[in-house]
Amino acid sequence: MNNLYPLFNLIIALTAAPLMSGVINRVKAFFAGRKGPPLLQLYFDIGKLLRKGAVYSRTTGVFFRLAPPAGLVFILTALLFIPCGAYPAVLFFPGDMVLVVYLLGAQRFCMLLAALDTGSSFEGMGASRDAHFSVFSEAVLFLCLAAMSVASGSVSLNGMLFTAGGRIWQVSPPVLLVVVFVLYIVLLVENYRVPFDDPNTHLELTMIHEAMALDHGGPDIAMFEYAAALKFWILASLPAGLLFPYGMKPDFFGNSALFLGVIALTAALTGALESCAARLRLVKVPQMLTAAAALSVVALIFLAK
């Protein structure tokens, strides 16, 4: 029975992912003293969009139609390798963290090309800025993974987060906290949250994430949004996996509830950050990410000694 649990975890991930954007918006509304949109708002949006038709621009070609489903598929495949708290990932093999990172890269490849296919300057601007940030964020992500693999002594994502369990903290807890902090920064960059991009701006010149989906309509935008939510879940599960209280050894439902709680906590933290902090200037973003990279290198060296 318990080897089916990873499958259930997968289903929970697929269903609970859109909830996180609801949590973020509610926290922002709470800070702003508003009531805010319902928690299940993203579910309603996706359902509504899936029932709509589609409007395609004449300049776009085959690639524009291929990109959203391909992007979603890449993210779904990446989800298979993510362990959920006390239960292993569906699939794991040595070096699967490299595959996960490159699957995220592949999804970015499709989004960039779809943006350029429309031929609009706004989407081009979004694509160029996303390509610019991805150069640094992927390097930082790899360094964090390196630090985690040195700390946990294993070369697979499942090994690092699941099998190492609590033992990962024995090496040197303060350094691992640094790694968690850097992972959180990577989460913010990759999911275009506040310090790096403002999700609810409506001035196209400042957007990055939404700018790339300006021309998508109907089912395409649904897949786009759902892929973004899943990406948030994947990148949130990395710090969550580290912070998960392994000592308690709950049964299956307890574990998934606990894991869901930790990820909701990360989402709430992102929402709080979004209401308190403002966007960084575009030039400052690479400097911030280089600082994060430096932090992760220091952590790696300390962990390896």
Binding site: K52, G53, A54, V55, Y56, S57, R58, S120, D215, G218
Partner: peptide, 17 residues
């Protein structure tokens, strides 16, 4: 995706600028 759009109305316009 193709199945979803089969019954729906698919129209062509200009890129949103």
């Amino acid at each position: 995706g193709r199945l979803l759009l089969r019954r729906r109305k698919v129209s062509f316009g200009e890129t949103w600028n």
